[in-house]
Nucleic acid binder design. Structure first.
Length: 269
DNA sequence: TCTGACCTGCGA
DNA sequence: TCGCAGGTCAGA
């Protein structure tokens, strides 16, 4: 599910509602989502802890709960809901937090592809590449990364060890914005196009954050609302519809087993 | 570098 | 009933 804009939206809402509050109770049901800890250990480690800060790196969200750091990757269908009444699938709630102000927070994942970790020091995410919302993501750094890889530019954008946070929806939208064919090898992107691509990454992700993310299927905000960015998509799931720029019908293809949407005219090879 | 598996719900 | 879906990773 969620790519960088959706995780950012959730992190911002959780910060607003829950930071500064103490976790009074944790009900963590055993599930395969726990990676380095059991559900019961996760619950007992967090009970009584004050939620100091909520951060995000790429598609990972991590909490600072006073020397305890739970880390969440939301997989394809993981969401946080403020109240069970806003959940479409209450039977798929895996963790429930009760805060000292009486407010509840539930973690739900229908498909159970999420991952939950717990660390006792600040996580560093060394296995991940640059987060495009950080200061380290410069045009110079981006061009260096491009030159190193012969894989398709779409695969490049979605490789979390190169750039952290871009998934299938935004890879398609970013390439359309930059007018670059998704099959082009990353190391064949020239100087002019690398500049356009670099700008498109920030623009598309920024707009999606402004629109509270894209709700194509499972994603909802903490309050159970849909995001709004699905109303602004130009190519993702638009196959067979005319391109907004030139009118050519949007094409659908497959790259690395993932649906790929692009305009053959605007994004010529 | 690519494919299939993981899991469940939905729409054609 | 079947194929597909925002992701990741092991294994070929």
């Amino acid at each position: 599910m969620p790519e960088l804009p959706e995780v950012e939206t959730i992190a911002r809402q959780l910060s607003e509602y829950y930071v500064g509050k103490t976790i009074a109770e944790v009900d963590a049901k055993p599930a395969r989502i726990y990676q380095n800890i059991s559900a019961s250990e996760f619950a007992s480690a967090l009970k009584g802890k004050k939620l100091e800060k909520i951060n995000r790196y790429g598609k990972f969200m991590y909490w600072d709960a006073g020397k305890v750091y739970p880390v969440f990757h939301l997989g394809m269908s993981g969401i946080f809901v403020a109240d069970k009444s806003v959940s479409n699938y209450p039977g798929h709630i895996h963790i429930s937090f009760e805060f000292d102000n009486g407010r509840m927070l539930h973690f739900q994942d229908v498909r159970k592809f999420s991952k939950v970790f717990l660390y006792h020091k600040l996580p560093e995410f060394r296995q991940l590449g640059l987060d495009p919302t950080t200061q380290n993501f410069t045009l110079t750094a981006f061009r260096k990364l491009l030159n190193l890889r012969a894989i398709s530019i779409k695969s490049f954008l979605m490789d979390q060890t190169i750039i952290a946070g871009i998934g299938n929806i935004y890879a398609n939208e970013i390439l359309f914005e930059a007018k670059i064919n998704p099959f082009r090898p990353a190391n064949k992107i020239n100087k002019n196009d690398s500049q356009k691509l670099y700008a498109a990454i920030s623009k598309i992700l920024g707009l999606a954050i402004d629109h509270f993310g894209t709700s194509y299927t499972a994603y909802r905000t903490v309050e159970g609302d849909s995001g709004e960015n699905q109303n602004f998509l130009k190519v993702y799931q638009q196959n067979g519809l005319p391109c907004m720029v030139c009118g050519t019908l949007i094409d659908k293809s497959v790259i690395n087993s993932r649906s790929t949407f692009y305009c053959r005219k605007c994004q010529e090879k």
